[in-house]
Design a protein around this nucleic acid. Sequence first.
RNA 1: GCCCCCGUAGCUCAGCGGAUAGAGCACCGCCCUCCGGAGGCGGUGGCGCAGGUUCGAUUCCUGCCGGGGGCACCA
Length: 548
Amino acid sequence: MIRDQLLAAVDAALDAAGLPIPPGGVALAPPTDPRQTADFTTNVAMQLARTVGSSPRDVAARLVEVLNAERPGHLDRAEVAGPGFVNLYLAPTWLHEVLRDVVAVGDRFGLGTTLSGERINLEFVSANPTGPIHAGAGRWIAVGDALANLLSSQGADVHREYYLNDAGAQLDKFGASLHARYEGAAPPEDGYQGAYVVDLAARLREALGDAVDEETAREWGYQAMVDDIRADLDRIGVQFDTWFSERTLHESGEVAAVLDDLRTRGALFDDDGATWIRTTDFGDPRDRVLVKSDGSPTYLLADLAYHRNKFARGWTHLIDIWGADHHGQVKSLQSGLEALGASPGEPEVLLGQLVKLQRGGELVRLSKRTGDIVTLADILDEVDPDVARLTFLFQSIDTAQTFDLDVVTAQSMENPVYYVQYAHARIASIGRRAAAAGITRLPILDASLAPLVHEREVDLLRALAQYPDVVAEAAAMRAPHRVTAWVRDFAKTFHSFYSECRVLSDDIALTQARLWLAEACRIALASALAILGVHAPDEMTRIDEDIP
RNA sequence: GCCCCCGUAGCUCAGCGGAUAGAGCACCGCCCUCCGGAGGCGGUGGCGCAGGUUCGAUUCCUGCCGGGGGCACCA
């Protein structure tokens, strides 16, 4: 849009001034300094100063001279500022053009093409089907789903996938524990001690009667847990495209095939009765076991078969979201896949720092032994899914998160999610008011946007202009929280506008212009909330009715 | 000992190498004739330490200090 035109103009101006274009192109962005009133600024002169052999301000002056002579569209003037910044001041019309652009693309506002053509398999959550989904896993649900939306918004074909570890020792332990409870006995020492297993045993008896053997108990329990997990995911509004069973890899011979392939490629060696893979050839700090001395496959072996299967199904790029406690396995998996011929760096693993739960001012100590866990369902019993999701999407996955159950529940009325949703609801409310008053929004081509000059209106238009870049950048950085940050900030700007600028007034032209501005804000809020997986309501349920 | 993440306001967190670092909560004031007060306006208050790279470092590199998570023939 407009920035692209300006970039082209700056490139041309550099050329006309006899200056080179820096490798990597010209950076053109709104100034971050709150004192600066320029619309865009570039540091290109400071970048070029050394190669050109003159001072940054001199280079900037040469560029400014050409720009002011050429005056590309919307440019009012260019100025040298500070140590050598070139500040571009645009005519107010450029922001009105932004508004027209937003309205023209409508619900497609914010979409980009930076990832078009990519076929991405995004695996997240993949909690073992041996118990309910833990509260902390809610972070990966929220982040994974938002990331999928984000990548899709940039044109990628994204597939949400859940890996079911239904072939390993954990499921056996789970089966043994369930069967023990079913028999009224205590689970094995290294089994699942949680109270939910007792409840599950009762459900098992109700479903299948009094003569259930351990294998039947395991299989029934497995299905029951998968059903429960799907129900929890359904509550928070996340749908997976594929639920992939580890068993199928063993049954289809794909696990064995990986071993054969690695043998052929000379990546294996035997030691101590076990079969190892030489992952150190690809940067792993140590080699890894694929087949244990008792002949059973390791988790890594099945995981290699799994990721190879993803490629075989046509996905060209794999992204896994893992908890930081698994970071030691990243290099092993990538090395093994590379040994199988995949491109280095596959899968791309996003390591998320863990969630600590806090209640009553104290950390909730989790103990597998006692089965003392807080589940996602527990959280969803207390707060609505939008609150839970946005809470998980506040911060970067690079930082450990403390999820304070008291704060999120007791103060949920003050949760920022409502602040953002309220902005959307207010716009809808204005629409209802307008309709009731018989005010119709005329086609934007017939509307004059010239009245939009108030500082709050300009703030909104600038924020709208930046939104597509925010989304593209968030996708590139795999950082949904950047969208959260933008939408919270945008909501603040909107509320400020709302209280200072009345949309519906006696000034017909101003009303028309502001109705269109409000519509553009609605489009942007809806877009951002959709990416985050949060609803954009047209009205809020009233609270605090008891206050006179 | 080695590997990964993080030390920014009293608390929780933002901040693609740019100019005087932002927001929420908390605290102190103020704003309801008017589109929904789940709101608005103002105030208090900050980059762990030391080097290095750079025209310019909260951001990149190194070391130290502090916090979290890993270093299995477990998943």
